[in-house]
Computed example of a mutant assay.
Amino acid sequence: MERIQGVGFPAASKELSEESLENIFTQLKDMLEELRALQPPPDIGVESCVGGSLYDSRILRKVSRFGPFKTIQEFHLYLREYCDPSTIQNVEIAQDLEDVKDMAAKQDGPWPPPVFTHGDLNPYNILVREGQVVGLIDWEFSGWYPHYWEYTSAWCGNILRTGWRDQLHKFLDPFPEEVKMETTRQRWWGEI
C-alpha cells in the first residue's frame, strides 16, 4: 500500500479540457477491461476476491457482510430476501407487481460467469493527477459479481450525481435492462 498523489475526479475535472476528460474516460475503460480480463478461479460464485463474504453498505441488512454465494441466482435471491413474486399480495399498483415479476424472471435466468468488480465506482474514488488516472481507491466492495454489477452500482449508487450517470457509458458498457432490474429491487428491498 502506498499514498497516491492525486485529487478526486470531481475536483480534477473542473480544470480539464474536453479532450483531457475523454482521455480520462479512455484510461478508466482500459483499467476496467483489464479487471474484466482477470480469470476467475474454477467454480467461482459471487464472493470476495479471497472467496469469502462481501461487503456493500448500500445493501441494507442487519449484518454488514453477506455471502459468499455459489451462483449468481443465489445472490439474486438474497438481494430480494428470498421473495417469490407469486406470493406477493395487496400491491396497490399493478405495475409494481409486474416490475417485480420481470425482475425476478431476469434474476433467476441464466448468467455468464462472475467478473471481478470494483463495486464502488463513484467519482470521488477515482484519483487524477496531471490528466492521468493515478488510482482507484476504496476497494472494500470489490469481488466477483455478475457482469452488470459495476455499471448498476455506479448508476444506482449515484442517484444525486446525474452528471456522473451521464458519463458512465464512456467507460463502462451500459446495461439498461439490469438498471431497471436493480432499481426495482432497490425500490422494494433496499437502498432507494
Score class of each variant (00 low, 15 high):
155 W>L: 07
140 E>L: 11
136 L>M: 11
152 T>S: 03
154 A>W: 01
148 Y>I: 03
154 A>D: 00
157 G>V: 04
160 L>V: 00
162 T>P: 10
153 S>A: 15
132 Q>K: 11
162 T>Q: 15
143 G>C: 08
173 D>P: 05
156 C>H: 03
157 G>N: 03
162 T>Y: 10
137 I>C: 11
143 G>R: 00
148 Y>M: 08
164 W>P: 00
135 G>K: 11
172 L>A: 08
132 Q>S: 04
134 V>I: 07
151 Y>C: 04
146 P>K: 14
157 G>H: 03
172 L>H: 10
168 L>T: 01
168 L>D: 00
156 C>M: 10
141 F>G: 01
139 W>G: 04
158 N>Q: 13
136 L>P: 05
175 F>A: 10
156 C>F: 05
158 N>M: 15
145 Y>N: 13
176 P>W: 12
163 G>H: 13
148 Y>V: 09
165 R>G: 08
159 I>V: 12
144 W>E: 05
171 F>P: 00
162 T>S: 14
164 W>R: 06
147 H>F: 13
156 C>V: 01
171 F>H: 02
167 Q>A: 13
177 E>C: 07
153 S>Q: 09
157 G>A: 05
159 I>C: 08
142 S>N: 07
134 V>F: 09
130 E>M: 03
167 Q>T: 06
166 D>L: 13
171 F>T: 01
131 G>N: 13
147 H>C: 14
138 D>E: 14
164 W>L: 05
164 W>Q: 01
133 V>H: 11
170 K>R: 15
166 D>Q: 12
134 V>A: 12
142 S>P: 02
165 R>F: 06
156 C>N: 01
157 G>Q: 00
164 W>C: 10
144 W>K: 01
145 Y>G: 07
171 F>S: 06
141 F>W: 07
150 E>L: 13
178 E>T: 01
157 G>W: 01
161 R>F: 09
162 T>A: 15
136 L>N: 10
137 I>F: 06
178 E>C: 05
133 V>S: 06
154 A>M: 01
132 Q>D: 06
177 E>T: 09
161 R>N: 15
145 Y>D: 10
166 D>I: 06
142 S>G: 01
147 H>T: 12
147 H>L: 15
175 F>L: 03
161 R>D: 12
140 E>P: 07
178 E>V: 07
160 L>S: 07
169 H>W: 10
138 D>A: 15
142 S>D: 05
135 G>Q: 10
149 W>S: 02
131 G>F: 06
175 F>K: 05
163 G>T: 09
151 Y>R: 03
172 L>K: 02
160 L>K: 05
145 Y>R: 14
171 F>G: 03
171 F>I: 00
166 D>R: 15
177 E>A: 13
130 E>D: 09
163 G>S: 14
134 V>H: 11
140 E>N: 14
147 H>V: 13
161 R>M: 04
143 G>Y: 04
142 S>M: 06
139 W>R: 10
166 D>T: 09
156 C>L: 13
172 L>G: 07
132 Q>I: 00
135 G>F: 04
159 I>A: 15
157 G>S: 08
130 E>K: 07
